[in-house]
Simulated assay, not measured.
Amino acid sequence: MNTVKLTKILGEEPLSMSSVGGGCIADSQIIATRSGKKYFLKQGFSNGMFEKEANGLRELASADVIRVPEVIHTSKDCLIIEYIKNGSKKKDFFEYFGHKLALLHQRTAEGYGFFEDNFIGSTPQINLASEEEKNNWPLFYWNKRILYQFRLAEKNGYADKTLTSLISKLESVLEDILSAGAEPPALLHGDLWGGNYMVDESGSPVLIDPAVYYGHREADLAMTKLFGGFSEDFYRAYQQTYPLKAGASEREPAYLLYHVLNHLNLFGSGYYGQAIQLLRKLTKK
């Protein structure tokens, strides 16, 4: 983005722009202005991804529970948000984080899904649902999450006989698995792993890079465990604030499966074995 356009958006001239490493999708930069303010710029795509991310950040911010970067500007090909300086975790960081996530999940909607589709990583995430799906979590989760990812796996050449057979068996049991934990649609970050939160100057959590929708809160918690999990203090505080229904651990593989299938489609066959393992656990085969 050129200096003239940035000046018009920010209301002052940029003094410097420095690239930020660590991201695997967007080109990210920190903008410093003459007044001393800083902003975070993401660009590099023109598929509407940044507009979807902005809407997700706004939805999370509207709950007024966990800090989220303020959206300054968004367009089809860029996103400018509040720059938040990295800090160090305060002593009770994970306890505080777990408590706050539990409060976030108490923000509910009338139906499952979201007012628009968005992205999970760089994969489209389908949130627009039929009236039946809006009121039926197992149906929504099957159609918009598992089946959608499986169809992508077919296109990408990963759906061999074993994966196809297990997915077919899962379809026949998924409703029974998920129905036992029925709850109202909760506001979800959607992609909550260690890389999608940061620590601010006060040592508190900040949610970034969301894939927001309204779904079952156990789906958010499952994602936190995909790459080793958060501190035990996090889960203990969550449970104390908003206890999970019985059987949550048995439903967890179903929620992990969505993300593992997505990683299979994004990053390749290294995730195939994990997908098969989860499917066998769910189908007892």
Rank of each mutant, 00 (worst) to 15 (best):
G23S: 03
Y271L: 14
R280S: 02
Y197V: 05
V4F: 05
S202N: 15
Y197W: 12
D92T: 11
K85F: 00
E116Y: 08
K161Q: 12
S179L: 15
Q240V: 05
F40C: 00
W193S: 05
R34P: 01
Y272P: 09
G215P: 09
G270V: 15
F97N: 05
G190W: 05
K100Y: 04
L163R: 09
L261F: 12
E53K: 01
Q29T: 01
G56C: 03
V65I: 15
F230L: 11
Y141K: 00
E171W: 00
N118M: 08
L60Y: 07
G23D: 02
K144G: 02
L166D: 04
T224H: 14
D160L: 10
N156Q: 12
G113P: 13
R151F: 04
F94G: 00
D200A: 03
G157R: 07
A275I: 07
Q125A: 13
K245N: 14
N55H: 12
L139R: 07
L152W: 09
T74V: 15
S35R: 02
K91H: 07
L178M: 08
L147R: 07
S28Y: 00
R107K: 14
E218H: 11
N136C: 15
G228Y: 06
G203D: 03
I66G: 00
S75C: 11
K284F: 06
K85T: 02
R34A: 09
S130M: 12
F227N: 05
K42C: 01
I66L: 02
D27Y: 01
N135P: 06
L279W: 02
G190R: 08
L101K: 06
F119W: 15
H259C: 05
H259S: 07
H99Q: 09
S75D: 14
K134V: 09
H259Q: 10
A248L: 07
Y83W: 14
R251C: 06
